Simulated assay, not measured.
Amino acid sequence: MIVDPPQTAGLGLLTRIAPLHCWAWLWVIAGVVTMASAFLQVGRDRFGFVAALVPPSVWAIAYLAAVMAGEYSRGAYVAIWYLTSHVGVIMWAATVPEHSVPKPPSARRAEGG
């Protein structure tokens, strides 16, 4: 990544605001929030799903903006890829029912159950 950085074609909207390495922190921070949310109780992990949606949504918007501006015609395919393989899958995963693991029998007895 340092010796041969990735191409920024289609990311002009983002690189006009900040260098690409700064945008990488968006992915890192979202990943940390998402990972931390995985350890929360069932039903309290919604912030993890929201955080996971942000980076691929931002990238999809940047590629769509590049297509509309005429800067990167192949950006439509990349935007569709981000919207389906990232955003769509995360939104689907957010709808999958979760079930809490019951407490061990000894813990229930101690509580009077």
Results as ranks from 00 to 15, higher is better:
L13H: 07
W23M: 01
S37L: 03
G88W: 11
G113P: 07
G31T: 10
A9K: 04
K103H: 14
T84A: 15
G88N: 11
L40M: 05
P97R: 14
T95Y: 08
E71H: 02
I90Q: 10
A60H: 00
V96K: 14
S73G: 06
V28D: 04
V32K: 01
I90P: 03
V96C: 09
A79E: 06
A110I: 13
H86I: 02
V96F: 13
V3K: 13
I2T: 15
L11H: 05
A66H: 02
L40E: 08
F47P: 00
L83H: 01
P102S: 12
V58L: 03
G75F: 00
I61H: 02
L14R: 00
V28C: 05
A36Y: 05
G12L: 09
W92K: 07
I80H: 00
A38H: 07
M35F: 13
G88Y: 09
V58F: 01
E71G: 00
L64C: 09
F49A: 11
P5K: 11
I17Q: 05
L14A: 01
T84Q: 07
V50T: 09
V33G: 04
L83S: 09
F39R: 10
E98Y: 10
F49V: 09
C22L: 14
A30K: 06
A60L: 05
K103A: 15
Y82W: 11
G43Y: 12
T8G: 12
V54R: 02
G10A: 08
A107V: 15
F39P: 01
G70H: 04
R16T: 09
V32A: 12
Y63P: 01
A66E: 01
M68H: 04
I80M: 08
A110S: 15
A30W: 05
D4N: 11
E71Y: 00
P56Q: 03
A24M: 11
V67I: 05
Q41Y: 00
V28I: 14
W25C: 02
P55R: 06
S37N: 13
A36G: 11
E71M: 00
P55C: 07
W27M: 05
A94K: 12
P6A: 13
A24T: 10
W23F: 09
V89M: 14
S37E: 04
A62M: 05
P105V: 12
W59H: 05
W59Y: 03
V28R: 08
P19V: 06
